[in-house]
């Protein structure tokens, strides 16, 4: 197996923590999949996404890792858990999936997984680690670069020869503004939609 490739490690702990966080991420993701209790699923999801933030840190993406913890784990999942609790009546907490759907889902998913795994090791450039020279234990200094890119200046693309792109077009100012406005609109809309306008009748459409 590729994972067992016994090369000399550039840094023992980098590999160690990669495996640690990867196992946590995948393990709790499987926990989400196989748990029937919706609150525990949410809890496993928190741990899975938190552990993947650890993977981000290991890849040198400190800012994105912190963003993942802040927005994804600290924001989105709190929202999700609120949603779970607002709808957590005892009959919804654990909803069993029919075993036929399980078989179908796992079969299709397994095929997809095999495909993705084979693709992951196709390209030689992807599967060769960068080695001793690439692993720097210094702080990644990408946060200011990311900030500059959001304001339209690509610090890492200074040698851009194309005049139009060098003039700021390679930055992300416009997408950033669009996404901000989008987020605002979405949050206002969601808050409006989620208001209780009328109570459901007891007979409802419950099957």
């Amino acid at each position: 197996m590729m994972l067992l490739a016994a090369e000399v490690a550039p840094s023992f702990w980098h590999g160690f923590f990669f495996v640690f966080f990867a196992l946590l991420t995948c393990g709790f993701a499987l926990g989400v999949l196989f748990s029937n209790n919706i609150v525990r699923m949410a809890f496993y999801l928190v741990l899975s996404l938190g552990a993947s933030a650890g993977l981000f840190f290991l890849a040198g993406a400190e800012f994105v890792g912190a963003m993942q913890l802040m927005i994804y784990v600290g924001g989105t999942l709190v929202l999700l858990i609120f949603g779970v609790m607002l709808t957590a009546q005892s009959r919804f907490i654990s909803m069993k999936t029919p075993s036929g759907e399980w078989v179908l889902g796992v079969a299709v998913g397994g095929c997809l997984l095999l495909l993705l795994l084979s693709v992951a090791f196709q390209v030689k450039d992807w599967r060769t680690p960068r080695g001793k020279g690439g692993l720097s234990l210094e702080d990644s200094k990408t946060s200011s670069q990311i900030g500059m890119a959001f304001t339209g200046v690509r610090v890492d693309k200074l040698d851009q020869k194309n005049e139009q792109l060098a003039g700021g077009m390679s930055g992300y100012l416009l997408p950033f503004v669009i996404v901000s406005v989008h987020l605002l609109v979405v949050l206002v809309g969601a808050a409006y939609m989620a208001r209780t306008k009328r109570r459901a009748t007891a007979t409802g459409a419950v099957g």
Binding site: V46, M67, V73, G74, M85, A88, S143
Partner: peptide, 24 residues
């Protein structure tokens, strides 16, 4: 850390899971 402020705020935000899960 280069993003220490952000990291501290983010991790403090996770603390809220403790009361939610404990209460539930």
């Amino acid at each position: 850390m280069n993003t220490a402020v952000f990291f501290i705020l983010a991790v403090l935000g996770i603390e809220v899971f403790s009361p939610i899960l404990a209460g539930y």
